[in-house]
Nucleic acid binder design. Structure first.
Lengths: 241, 241
DNA sequence: AAGTGGTCTAGACCACGAT
DNA sequence: TCGTGGTCTAGACCACTTA
């Protein structure tokens, strides 16, 4: 059921990413040279380079001309909302138990705001899902998801309680490809007060996500609203294009 | 003085990125196929593919198997703190005038906090720079920068008033390579109240940056403190890996 | 069937760092 | 000088979309 990428370079990438993540290899060590790796794996050097470039892009190694590829300290990089990950995937990294409550699920007609956010027309139908996330014993995150029905024909409460993304990718075979993300801080709404334990905070961090499929069609708009003191975003960035 | 990358694939990347940014090519259009481009530029297809992969990574195009490369809507992506950009580079995109005030600059010995953040020893000396950024007529951002003196021997008030990064890259020839970024919300400090127009906000968005050189040595720790209502972070992310 | 992008190869030359 | 990573080539086969 799960789509496995069996590309050589991807396999090699995963293999070394794992070695670094588990701490089998330590920060400061160097990995074998590209030529050595090409021999070890019986591939061409360009294939090795694709794997190493992935490692570099994702912050596992730093390639240094004339020297080799040095392993970076990857420990601090926990809890990334970075990239494109769903709450289910993120919550694996939590210590405390995380539970999801579905407050609202149903088909609606888009208002002006949604028509703009989803580039939808009056005729489009939209799945609206409101969920809160409890971590430990506090309700901390409020997720408001909107899916175009033409891409997601059916949705149930049960699906929303586990992982919508699992369902979309594995059952509907949708290929989620990229997203535009925006992080801002807004005043809390009635809805926030109702569903979250706000502890007196008057503002809330809002992560807005516009999610696209492989064919470049926008199919989801999401607002993930995080209580100020519990929000954390981690990112790894390389300079210059 | 400025280092120009004259790689074929980089030139091709810049050329098409420019065409898309300026709107000469519109979202939804397709660019020529890889084979066509290889012919046009008189290069191999792999070189074209390196250029197109850069375009895809940076959100300019979406490559679709069997079809071609479609141009994405890149307009909404203004004001990225994403990637690694300095305030000077960001402020180009502002409507209003942006000015920088230097409040403090000097060499200090690291306290426990800084020793940890910069992985420094007691013997290290550190440049401390405190600056506020005024946009329009409000002081909105407080930047606290710490540089290891062994990498940055000299710093002046004048340099800090323009762009420290310009100075580091062009005059000191330092190669800034990558950074780890963390975004959280904290309570305002005395320092924030003193240097910023906080308008009653009790909390502040803090962007913490750990900046590394090409040889993987950490040389800078920065806190960029943004007033809640003026903070905006935009990102483009691809799913998987 | 033809055209597209995705993977992979075996080789070449270059710029850079260590020795 | 030698080994490293960075760029580039000319070709091959594949999976996919479109006609």
């Amino acid at each position: 059921m799960i789509k496995v990428r069996a590309n050589k370079y991807h396999v090699i990438y995963k293999e070394w990413a794992e070695k670094i993540k588990t701490g089998e290899l330590k920060a400061g060590d160097t990995i074998p040279s590209e030529n050595d790796l090409a021999q070890i794996y019986g591939t061409s050097r360009e294939t090795i380079r694709k794997a190493l470039n992935l490692l570099a892009q994702n912050g596992f190694i730093q390639k240094i001309r004339g020297k080799g590829s040095v392993i970076l300290d990857v420990q601090k990089m926990s809890f990334p909302i970075s990239g494109l990950v769903s709450f289910k995937e993120i919550s694996k990294g939590f210590q405390a138990e995380a539970t999801t409550t579905v407050h609202d699920i149903g088909l609606i007609k888009p208002d002006a705001f949604l028509m703009q956010q989803l580039q939808a027309s009056k005729k489009d139908e939209i799945w609206k899902v409101i969920r809160s996330r409890k971590i430990g014993d506090e309700r901390i995150i409020l997720d408001k998801d909107y899916f175009l029905k033409k891409h997601v024909p059916m949705l149930t409460k049960q699906i929303c309680e586990s992982s919508i993304y699992d369902y979309l990718e594995h059952n509907l075979q949708l290929s989620i490809s990229f997203a535009k993300k925006e992080i801002v801080v807004e005043e809390c709404t009635e809805e926030d007060y109702k569903h979250l334990d706000l502890e007196g905070f008057t503002h809330i961090v809002v992560v807005k996500n516009y999610v696209y499929l492989e064919n470049t069609s926008l199919f989801q708009y999401t607002e993930s609203r995080h209580r100020l003191d519990k929000f954390r975003f981690v990112d790894f960035a390389r300079r210059g294009v």
